[in-house]
Simulated assay, not measured.
Amino acid sequence: MSSTLAKYESFLINNVSTISTLESTLRSVTWFLPGRFKDAELASESVSALLNVTSLYHDTLLARIVQNDSKWKPILPVPLHTRYARAWCDKDSAYKWIARTLELLKYTQLLVEMGLRRKTSDKTRWRGIILLETIKALLRFALLRITRRPLLSPAVPERDFDPSTLPPKSTLSSPTLVTESLPSSMPSTPEHLKNNHVPLPLSPSPLLVTPPPPSRSDSSVEDYLLPKALTTSSVRPPLSLVNKLATPQDWLAEAIYILRPLIYASLLASGRFKNRALVSAFALELASRNMRRTPAPSATLEQNEYSRRDKDMLWYLLRGSVWDNYTRPKLEQFTNKTAQTPIFGLFSAIVSDWIPLIDDYYYYTAP
């Protein structure tokens, strides 16, 4: 087994550009599969889950190669999220495996739901969903106990470089990676330049004395360089990028946020409180948002996480009565009007194929 794994890793390193292109292409194809044939959504989700799991392994392998090989180092600073998550993975093995398990569950949960929907009753399917949400909540509480800090999503390090730019072993330069050592000998001066000591004569041409046009601006250069400049967060220790939860209110806000998906799924599974599920989940979302602390201006990573949570509230447009009474009628009206339009017709066809999936499956719009 170890020899097979070593052969696969060697194949990945030697063909990393091709594999990266193939992953990107297959991800794009999965968006067009639903509705094309029978059980197309199952095939699409199977490919998507397989790609996510293999990408997680590829990211871990490539990061280890770059980290262990002293010849290579990234030109640009490593993203803050990657620094923070990688520091916890290196410090605590329990965090590393819990975070990976949580990500694997997130990658495969919809595929599990599709299998349960085809093979079991609706009641059993909801029991499986509640079991998955319970396991995920326990894993998140375990991460919360280890870090004592607000949870970031994803909990594992993200890909901090394009694997297609990883050079082969024989290459000494790359667009994103540079060597630490310089060549032993500098290239010699060409023969036709060795005796070139004649100064360039002055030319009356206006090209040499005319200043650049006044409309020329360096703002584009500044806009490109500013995001890549070092900040105070870039030089801080990785584990101090997110401050610890200090007050009982901070802990309670994080606990509510973790329990919210489990409570929402449990209410949906019970026929008695199904109509209250959306309102209850949204109320818990607002309670967690109002109780959480306001991060300091320098806490960039925590600000980004809270901003992501706020944007995720848009998913409530695809849930419950809001979806049934508002969003779905609007989408159906749009698809009916644009079905014959040359450009919008393709988009409306994709939307029409995805609408039944949102109706039938919980994990397409789960919190």
Rank of each mutant, 00 (worst) to 15 (best):
A339E: 15
G345E: 01
F347H: 12
T327Y: 01
T335F: 00
F347T: 13
L346W: 10
W323H: 06
N336H: 08
I350C: 08
P329K: 14
A339P: 02
A339N: 01
F344C: 07
L346I: 11
A339W: 07
R328L: 03
L331I: 06
W323S: 13
T335Y: 10
W323K: 06
D324Q: 14
D324W: 06
T338L: 02
Q333A: 11
L346T: 15
P329F: 03
E332P: 13
D353Q: 02
P329N: 12
Y326T: 13
E332N: 06
E332R: 14
T338S: 08
F344N: 07
A339M: 01
D353H: 01
K330W: 10
F344R: 02
N325G: 04
P342R: 15
L346V: 13
N336F: 03
T335L: 01
W354Y: 00
D324A: 09
L346A: 09
A349S: 14
G345Q: 04
G345V: 00
K337V: 04
K330S: 11
T341Q: 06
I355D: 13
E332C: 08
L331D: 15
T335R: 15
W354L: 09
R328T: 15
L331K: 09
Y326G: 03
W323N: 10
P342S: 10
D353V: 05
F344E: 10
W323A: 06
F344V: 05
T341S: 11
N325I: 03
N336A: 05
I355K: 08
L346C: 14
P342W: 03
G345T: 07
W354E: 15
N325R: 11
W323F: 03
A349M: 05
S348V: 08
I350P: 10
A339K: 10
W354V: 09
F344D: 08
V351E: 15
I350E: 14
R328Y: 12
N325H: 01
I343V: 07
R328F: 01
P342D: 08
F344W: 02
L346D: 15
F334L: 02
E332G: 13
V351H: 03
T338R: 08
N336Q: 14
T335N: 08
I343F: 05
I343R: 09
S352I: 01
F334A: 10
Y326R: 15
S348Q: 08
Y326H: 04
D353A: 02
N325M: 00
I355Q: 11
Q333E: 15
T338M: 01
P329T: 09
T338V: 00
T335G: 10
R328P: 05
G345K: 03
T327M: 04
K337T: 14
P329I: 07
Y326C: 04
P329H: 12
